[in-house]
Amino acid sequence: MRRKPGAILPLEASILETAVSLSTAGIEQFHGFELAKRLRGDEGQQRLTAHGTLYKALTRMEKAGLLESVWENPDTAVEEGRPRRRLYSITSKGRVAVARVEAEQAAASNLDPGLSTP
């Protein structure tokens, strides 16, 4: 099924929400695996997001201007003895998109309150 122009997929919405919560906690930049762990925790899933699904979504979101990314300083990676990380951060456009998604969700739950009651 094709997505509508400007539509945000559930995974993308989750990524943006996670990015906002990380930012609120003072973590402005995050890498792919950290994000996968956070997503698993937030969504209550047992499994981490698949490599292909995660990085495809991140690339797509960056192209859409919702996220931006930079390579980590190579010295830091060398000091810690690990590969260099690609660090993502949410953009102002991404924050607007999160707000819109949350507003839509709130509107949807107001329209049918029976859905939200157990």
């Binding site: 996968a36 499994r47 981490l48 997001t49 698949a50 490599h51 292909g52 699904t53 995660l54 990085y55 495809k56 690339t59």
Partner: peptide, 12 residues
């Protein structure tokens, strides 16, 4: 994770 991501890799 590798296995589940293959379809997305191919589409990407």
């Amino acid at each position: 994770r590798f296995l589940r991501g293959i379809p997305a890799d191919v589409r990407w």
